[in-house]
């Protein structure tokens, strides 16, 4: 199974990324311990030069992780045809115990990487590298997550066997099955719909207000995270039903298939970008009081808040279009 092209590409990239990160770690530790901007020593000069390499390298690694998530899901969906009983990505991910943990770890890495990239962006705009230590401490904190995601991915791909009979999304996302997915799938449509629009409206409204000058960075991040969770629940509870025009098919992965004209990507891409931008607003808010960042943070946060608001509005519009164009009548009125 490991000889699938997309798997090879994913493993190659995760190996390289881990290799680069591990190679960068000793330098990062050195920077954290000995960084002193006021010193003019040769070692400090060398460190200043190294920060260029490290931040470029890390930006490269984290940007790769953003794309890797897309490739991972895309590949899981495509590989469903190789497993007995699988109809979409769920079947592939359930083919062994590491599938869903690997996906969740990759999603977590996606958001953490996005936040790190935002902090890095802010830092490079100030002349005195005010966030340098924080950036590299964060890198050391991120390293275990990346390692875990990579290990889970390896275990998942290595353990894939074509003769395993896996299960279809119908059994995981049905109203009757035990577990949290089923509880979400069984959520009543009307309250979920209201919660969905309300959370998106709050998140994008707050982001717009923040853009106008109201200091609400943490609130934007919190509301973005809530909007992300509620949108995922809404996907299970009613959006997917409208895509399939079927009252019992709750799968959030089948909407990625060409059979449904890839509508899932139109929902997921703005959702993930919007959430990442929203979280970024909160992350940079923490450094608004740093003297050399006082003009940088509001500008960057404003742009990010604009992106977050636009993306959440896009999610709401796409979801509304899906519901409006569907022939399924879930609500009586």
């Amino acid at each position: 199974m490991i000889l699938q092209p997309a798997i090879l590409a994913l493993l190659l990239s995760s190996l390289l990324c881990i290799g680069l990160l591990l190679a960068a770690t000793p330098y990062a530790i050195d920077l954290i311990r000995h960084w002193d901007l006021s010193s003019g020593s040769e070692r400090q000069l060398l460190r200043e030069r190294r920060t260029y390499l490290l931040s470029t390298l890390l930006a490269f690694v984290f940007a790769t992780q953003l794309v890797a998530l897309l490739l991972f899901v895309f590949n899981a969906d495509r590989m469903a045809s190789l497993f007995v009983g699988a109809m979409c990505a769920v079947g592939t991910l359930q083919a062994n115990a590491f599938g869903f943990p690997a996906l969740l770890a990759q999603i977590l890495v996606f958001f953490l990487a996005a936040v790190w990239l935002v902090i890095n962006h802010v830092d490079t705009h100030a002349p005195d590298y005010p966030l340098l230590r924080i950036k590299y401490v964060l890198l050391l904190c991120l390293l275990p997550f990346l390692l875990t995601a990579a290990v889970l991915q390896w275990r998942f791909f290595l353990a894939l066997r074509a003769d395993v009979i896996t299960s279809c999304c119908g059994s995981l996302f049905s109203d009757a099955a035990p577990g949290v997915t089923a509880d979400l799938a069984a959520a009543p449509p009307l309250p979920t719909m209201l919660a969905f629009y309300l959370s998106l409206a709050l998140a994008s409204g707050c982001a717009l207000l923040h853009r106008q000058g109201l200091r609400a960075g943490y609130l934007v991040a919190l509301l973005s995270a809530v909007a992300f969770a509620v949108t995922m629940a809404a996907l299970l509870a009613f959006i997917s039903l409208h895509v399939y025009e079927h009252p019992h098919h709750h799968c959030p992965f089948c909407i990625l298939k060409p059979d449904y004209s890839y509508q899932g990507y139109a929902l997921y891409v703005p959702l993930f970008v919007g959430t990442a931008a929203g979280l970024g607003v909160g992350a940079v808010q923490a450094f608004a009081s740093v003297p050399s960042l006082q003009s940088v943070v509001p500008a960057v946060a404003g742009r990010l808040a604009g992106i977050a608001a636009a993306m959440f509005i896009a999610v709401a519009v796409v979801a509304s279009l899906i519901v409006a164009n569907s022939r399924l009548l879930l609500l009586d009125n």
């Binding site: 590409a9 190659l12 390289l16 790769t64 794309v67 490739l71």
Partner: peptide, 17 residues
């Protein structure tokens, strides 16, 4: 699409690294 993305990973990524 998957093919093009995979190919991109296979070629551009090692070059950049």
């Amino acid at each position: 699409g998957l093919q093009v993305t995979t190919l991109f990973f296979f070629t551009v990524f090692p070059y950049a690294a």
